[in-house]
Design a protein around this nucleic acid. Structure first.
Lengths: 78, 78
DNA sequence: GTGTAGACTGGCGTCGACA
DNA sequence: TTGTCGACGCCAGTCTACA
């Protein structure tokens, strides 16, 4: 269970809760749709700038998003 | 005033408050010393994994670090 | 202890296309 | 609407070395 996998799951969850498409999220965050797809499937590790862009598009704070990630990450068996 | 520049300043601040060297931080976070140097000077944008590694070495939560960054970022004139 | 330089590998992030 | 593929440019991150 890697960090980017957890990040992707949470991102997908939040996006679907917002009821918006990958396409719209990509447009609002000035990123590529295929890249959003890869992120949600844990295939890519976003940089801090990418995290800020996505959070800006989702109207949430980067710290809030990372808190969700770290909560699930610390909850992993290891 | 870019995100990575603010991130670097805060990282340097925290590290110096801890009283540890770039060398020790690099070792504890399994990163290269020259890369820590570049990060602190805003020359590089860390990935989410790198952020987690550094925060782990600093005994702080990634969300806490990002909160400091976003507070200063939102405080910028634009 | 830190900044910087150069060279390098791998991966971030883009783009067009098709199922 | 999303996943994936291939190709691509550029930068994340490493390493050696020197001031």
């Amino acid at each position: 269970m890697t960090i980017q996998y957890i990040f992707g799951n949470i991102l997908k969850q939040i996006r679907e809760n917002r009821g918006i498409s990958q396409e719209k999220l990509a447009f609002d965050s000035s990123l590529d749709r295929t890249y959003i797809s890869m992120l949600e499937r844990g295939k890519r590790k976003p940089t801090i700038n990418t995290i800020f862009s996505i959070c800006n598009a989702l109207h949430m704070k980067p710290s809030e998003l990372l808190q969700l990630v770290e909560l699930e990450f610390d909850n992993q068996p290891h």
